[in-house]
């Protein structure tokens, strides 16, 4: 459908292998284990949702995958290579407000290409194609503050996609949007993903969202964060909103609710981010 699709490599790209991963956050007396003994294998092109209550360490795990947090033990390999800091092959999308406010929509999206030293005309051509893909043609010269929250997240997605990432890491990317916009964005993300087929690791605490989007959901327990269950979702694609009210969907949702309920901490946990603890 678009030139982007041609770049998606066939088969083997974006294979994530996490082995016995531990991540410690904080220092001194404040130190705690945010992620404990997590081992997961994610197939190339798989859409995985990490589901868990606030502060359970799912964003911490994502931060380690992005290369912003250093594991205290264990290993992460992407396509058999160990991680070494952040890399454009592993695109990261935050919840909100991480577009560069001083750059236009066009220049935000083209940023990754600028970092590769690609000339302006070529960057803008490719950024324009991606903006079209996420439905933002005509907004190239706007600044982020002139866009609604949903539109800003589309720009975020386009900005990451321009690097043809093997892996897209998304930290509750639609968490700050209203319910209707969120549904629209989920649909958009699935459409985009169908055309580029990159591996996606998607963090959420919204059960509906996880069940609607993912090939497989991993459920995490709060502190220390461990994966307590995984479920493969065999709903057919492309997925339609009707899925949300199907029997199987509701049955799974009830199961997840029970799991999360029994696992939730008695006290509210401090929110964690892919960059560590918010102080």
């Amino acid at each position: 459908m678009s030139p982007v699709a041609n770049h998606a490599s066939p088969g083997i790209q974006g294979h994530i292998e996490i082995k016995n991963l531990y991540i410690q956050l904080g220092s001194g007396d404040q130190a705690f284990e945010a992620v404990q003994n997590v081992s997961v294998s994610i197939k190339p092109g798989e859409f995985v949702c990490l589901l868990g209550p606030s502060g359970c360490g799912k964003s911490t795990l994502l931060g380690a995958l992005a290369g912003h947090l250093q594991p205290s033990d264990g290993s992460i390999h992407v396509d058999s290579l160990p991680l070494n800091g952040p890399h454009p092959e592993r695109g990261l999308v935050f919840q909100q407000h991480t577009l560069f406010p001083w750059k236009t929509v066009m220049d935000n999206v083209a940023f990754g290409l600028k970092m590769k030293g690609i000339l302006r005309a070529e960057r803008h051509k490719r950024a324009g194609e991606l903006l079209e893909l996420v439905g933002l043609a005509g907004f190239e010269q706007h600044y982020p503050f002139q866009l609604s929250g949903g539109m800003q997240q589309r720009v975020e997605i386009a900005r990451v996609l321009i690097n043809h990432p093997k892996v897209m890491l998304m930290d509750e990317p639609f968490g700050a949007l209203d319910a209707q916009t969120r549904m629209m964005m989920q649909q958009l993300l699935l459409d985009v993903w169908e055309s580029i087929k990159t591996t996606i690791v998607f963090i959420t605490h919204d059960i509906d969202e996880a069940l609607f989007l993912a090939d497989r959901i991993l459920i995490m327990s709060p502190r220390p964060g461990r994966i307590i269950e995984q479920t493969v979702l065999e709903f057919v694609r492309p997925r339609k909103p009707e899925l949300l009210t199907s029997d199987r969907f509701i049955q799974l949702k009830r199961h997840c609710l029970e799991l999360l309920h029994t696992q939730s901490a008695d006290f509210p946990l401090q929110r964690l981010t892919p960059l560590g603890v918010i102080s």
Binding site: P86, G91, F94, F100, M115, V160, L275
Partner: peptide, 28 residues
Amino acid sequence: DARLIASARSLGSGRRAVFTEVILPAAA
């Protein structure tokens, strides 16, 4: 905002690009 710096690094910025593309305009 540390997240802006992290975003830039994840998009391929090195130390120098983080400074000119993020720190300077953000502090302007």
